[in-house]
Amino acid sequence: MTDFTLWDIVRNLLLAGRWTVVLSLIAFTGGAVVGLVLTLARMGGLWPVRWLIRLYVDLFQGTPLLMQLFLAYFGAAVLGFDVSAWTAASVALTLFTSAFLCDIWRGCVEAVPSGQWQAARVLGLNYLQSMRHVILPQALRLAVPPTVGFSVQVIKGTALASVIGFVELTKAGTMLNNAAFAPFTIFALVALGYFILCYPLSRYARHLEKKLYGAGIR
């Protein structure tokens, strides 16, 4: 089985790596949109809304992503929906991401000192005005480093989509290995692929963190 040159392997992994990137982008963008809506609803909403969102966050944080993918793919089929691996992976990862971002961002809003709310209040700003002009701009600055940091988890999470037959970097590695049987080389290259995607983001998150605290903003 020596028909596979190293270049063949790398080329095929690179091609599949595109889908890792695309799926990560979908999950992160979708997750950010849903997460933002949930964050705002959770903070401003009535107690049933807050309770439901907390349950949602706890459910997604308290179950393995693998199960969420299985449920999105096979569960939908049982219920009579014919979903593709693409749809199932996108939906599951989007929901997973939204739950974590909702929790991260809530923490950031709560990390803004209560004196800021009080100062806004005595100046006559109402809830929405305080949020918009005083709280959110500060929460946003706090949120950037952990959010960028979490995007690394999303990229690595896409590897699990391989189990429902979604051909991304990991699945491509498995398939190549079935044909070429060079597990060490292939999976080392797969790992390297993830590292190349994740490392710059980790570094960037660390850089942002330093910049944030260096600016003397509490």
Partner: peptide, 14 residues
Amino acid sequence: NVGMVFQSFNLFPH
């Protein structure tokens, strides 16, 4: 009608 100044200033840092 009523203004207030706090012990910890509470200026908006941004």
